[in-house]
Write a protein that binds this DNA or RNA. Structure first.
Lengths: 130, 130, 130, 130
DNA sequence: GTGGTCTAGACCACG
DNA sequence: GTGGTCTAGACCACC
């Protein structure tokens, strides 16, 4: 969908990165299939109430990663490799965050079992809320 | 020990925050006990090869958090409450990172079991390296 | 108004704190409403004839207290909670000063009635000048 | 008396000023009468567990204010004018603090009656605790 | 343009 | 000696 109040200007994560993440998520989830044309910089900037420069920067990052590619005169198009790329990227991101959390946990002298307990706690929390 | 090549000037996390984290870690781990005087701004700046202002900023943050308190003319001293504060801070930090990782995992449509598997993978990884 | 010869560089109270107090005062009095964008670090530094770093420090203190929040690329904005926060802060400050005065008065063996008389004297004084 | 755990090293008010205040208080209250010789810098520093420089500084301030005067070979002596000076000083200090509190109160748009109420509140508080 | 961080070096009050 | 404040001017990421 790409647009659903997904921008949080107060977040510490830059807006352009939020846009990148949203596109990656939509491609990974299949709601933005390969070959699809995504909205123009101008349009998307209007929809997200964001500066066009910011959207342009997001698109540039996406293009660098091979997720989208410019089609002359038509705008940006999701590449054929994008779905695989984006699924891998999301898995890597999750794995990286877990690794980061575990490194911090162990440097705080928490045992593996204590870590497991924390994970279960948080899983319950998240599911409860969810 | 407070000083062991612990500053990474190119990290995205600010130097003064790295210093704060290091002190919190050392207090939490007990290697910097309550009542201890920590090195002076100028000394630590020399040891870390950092500008004194940067160290002073870190000390001020720590003082605001109640971890250290200025002893006029004598330097900064670890407060009696600091060990408890710092242990709690580290646990909170770990918990927050785990929560963050889980939220990302679930938003990527990973099931709880898949998350557990990732955690176990990473635990094995980390322990292996450890 | 935020700017009216309000900085006294020779005061014992630090300049950055004077700026903080002035903003708090303006927010509490309603002349700086929630949602408003306050002048940029560089602008305010120019107006107050003060180094930008000093203004930045004041802004950071205000942000820590939840009075203002950074809008990236746009400047600092007064938070929705700021008016309540600032009114409470001013009341607390007044109460603290009164308490401090009373403690000194009583430690000087002044009776409650003598204190009341002093307060009335000063009230008359201040109102007279006012 | 001059010595009864009266030094608070953590207070924001400088130690030398705490000593000055204590002497002024003792002279004003009559427990340190005119003509009395006060302890030497060395002795007082020992009693207060404070650096001799700090005591010397306090004595210097007191001498500047005419509260004590050096008697060659005998140490410092309370001057004949000291009791009047110190009583006046304490009253002025109280009056100044009250004035300061009132100015802040009025600049926060509190009415005279609201100020009176705050004063009564704090008087009750202080008396209750006292 | 905005705020955030860092280096550099000055001055001050305090002990 | 200590920490605290200030000026000065640099660089960065973000919008």
């Amino acid at each position: 969908m790409l647009v659903r109040e997904c921008i949080q200007p107060d977040s510490p994560v830059p807006i352009y990165e939020q846009i990148v993440d949203q596109v990656v998520f939509d491609v990974a989830s299949g709601s933005l299939p390969a070959g699809e044309t995504i909205p123009s910089v101008r349009d998307l900037a209007g929809l997200l109430a964001v500066h066009p420069n910011t959207v342009a920067r997001a698109f540039q990052k996406l293009a660098e990663r091979g997720v989208i590619t410019p089609r002359r005169g038509l705008g940006m198009e999701v590449t054929p490799e994008a779905p695989a790329l984006c699924r891998a990227a999301r898995l890597d991101a999750v794995r990286g965050r877990i690794r980061d959390a575990l490194l911090h946990a162990l440097s705080s002298s928490l045992s593996a079992d204590e870590v497991r307990k924390l994970v279960e706690d948080e899983l319950a929390h998240v599911n409860g809320r969810h």
